[in-house]
Design a protein around this nucleic acid. Structure first.
Lengths: 195, 195
DNA sequence: GTCTATATCGAGATAGAC
DNA sequence: GTCTATCTCGATATAGAC
């Protein structure tokens, strides 16, 4: 029988994360109230505080989970081979991973300024780890003279910025398939860093 | 003599815009109160409403002013010549213009979702005008076979995304001068679209 | 673990005196 | 044109019953 009260600890926790992710991405962290999140989950606002100490921690955990999933997934999938193959692999991975979770990506990007300084520093450290991955590929390729970039750090930031742009316009079912998008961006990245 | 009351219509209007620009960029539109803006200006909150009908209109005007300044400045400075010269000119202009006003750029990018649908559509139209400028350069260059891009529209978005990234890390007095940054990005863009 | 009720606070916007 | 005072609303977070 349906009940409107009772214990749901197993499902309420994840549902809070999911609801907050969606609402923060849609309206922004500061514009979303705890009441809205609770309504989306189907509980009263007070019940949220059984799962999170406060709103700030909720935001931080969303961003931390996202960044750690990014790093873990990348670590497991990262290919070997020559620098060009590794770069191609990175481009493909980055586009695909980010297109699969647009809400989390959007939040991890747009809500940095709503983190406390301590939380901000922790997220930035994770982001730095990810960027170093690409930077190493570009440095190895430059050393092997298969790439020629005027500045390894700027090339890293430039490539990531270009790839991040995909999330702002791509919609599945649009003019281009995911494979086509990957091919187009790989073509531009490859040429941009080519010797 | 100093006075704490009286008429200041000539200066209060611009000061509201300046204060709002700074505060919105720093904390986000939704997180900034009208009282904060008023305090920065040096008036009481009620006085703001002699200049703006509401907070939403204040945000919209900031973004509209920014986009129209972008389009006007570009129109006056746009160079002629072959597609490669025009592309180089665009890259240089884009980086320089955007680095000169980081707060306005940040807001025009991050606060789109806080606009009403009508205001959003008007800003997006202005942004489309700017993107078409670059798109025409890439199309002309492809037709002349000095460029080779797999998809003109995606190349446009890719280049702009890459260039926008500069604003996230550049600080004057840092490792690279503005001229060096322009040279590095021009090198990457040129190669990315080269035939 | 969730509920209802509430404490405390600050938001956007307006009214009317000066 | 700016002030003070205030209306109305909703925010985060907590307390205690069930």
């Amino acid at each position: 029988m349906a009940r409107t009260q009772g214990s749901h600890s197993d499902i309420t926790g994840p549902r809070i994360q999911t609801a907050a992710l969606k609402l923060f991405a849609q309206h922004g962290y500061a514009a979303v109230s705890m009441r809205q999140i609770a309504a989306q989950v189907g509980v009263q606002a007070g019940a949220l505080y059984n799962y999170i100490p406060d709103k700030q921690t909720l935001l931080f955990r969303l961003m931390q989970d996202h960044m750690e999933t990014l790093l873990d997934t990348r670590r497991r999938q990262a290919g070997q081979g020559d620098p060009e193959a590794r770069l191609r692999d990175f481009v493909r991975f980055h586009i695909r991973f980010h297109l699969e979770r647009p809400d989390a990506v959007f939040i991890a990007y747009m809500e940095l300024r709503n983190l406390t300084p301590e939380n901000f520093a922790r997220i930035e450290e994770l982001r730095g780890n990810y960027e170093r991955d690409l930077e190493n590929i570009l440095r190895d390729g430059s050393a092997a003279e298969v790439f020629s970039v005027p500045d390894t750090k700027l090339a890293t930031l430039g490539v990531i910025a270009m790839l991040n742009g995909v999330n702002t316009w791509y919609r599945s079912g649009g003019r281009l398939s995911l494979d086509e998008v990957e091919a187009v961006y790989w073509s531009m990245v490859r040429k941009a860093v080519a010797a």
